[in-house]
Amino acid sequence: MFMLDWYAHNNRLKDAHPGEKAVFVFLCLGLCLFFSRETVSLAAILLLSILILFYVKIPLGFYLKLLCLPFAFLLPGCLAVALELPVMPETAVLILPVGPFTLGIGSAGLSLAVNLLLRSLAALCALYFLALTTPFDQLGWLLRRAKLPPAVVELTALTYRFIFILYATAQSIYTAQATRLGYASRCNALKSLGSLAAGLLYKSFYRSQMMHAGLLSRCYEGTFPTLKTYYAFSPRNWLFVCGTVVLLVAMAQFSF
């Protein structure tokens, strides 16, 4: 998660217009969901992965790890779609007799599952593209431009900052405990973990009070005004977005 944030701040597209990135990503996402064709999804997966790996230059290992994360719920989901009970023997691809029932995968269920899997993967690639190329500050800009209520945007930004503070605090408590053998045995670990949670609560409370004082001292009045940022449009990027739309629409004309 922290690596993801690091790449978002250190990649070739970090200074690109966030609007361009968002339009690109949501067009890919929208077209995949709209057409719901394997060809479109596959094309989007390939295109986005090539971009992420060879243009944005995310290491393959890290990218694969990111893709594996959602598989934990993606695969059981697709399996559930594919399985039929009872399965028609004439259309079955796989038959598993379980006691008196015939459980199996039918061809209709299979194609539905494959379609679902590819569509989900395409959507994932698209969102990862956004997450890997857009620093949080630009996401905030996007949320504000999308006319979300300021309170929601501010809360998102604060949460983002606090995740890192909370993590750093927890880590420092953990280190302090570990150096004194706080995690040497299972019993110690259980005790230490409890006091870590308690310590974290106390420290978070203290810190939030101090931060409030810090904000007040800079004339905080309940809102977080932000400086408008102007990003440069790139004709080359827009051309690429148009090309992608043409490609995906064209792919929708084919099928297996």
């Binding site: 900052r161 931060m211 810090g214 005004p225």
Partner: peptide, 24 residues
């Protein structure tokens, strides 16, 4: 403040520094 960690809240340095002047 002594601990800069408690003073910084924004998601970028630029927005952090702009917070005070915009509040004015």
């Amino acid at each position: 403040f002594q601990d800069p960690e408690i003073q910084l809240f924004a998601s970028s340095v630029r927005q952090e520094v702009a917070f005070g002047p915009l509040n004015l």
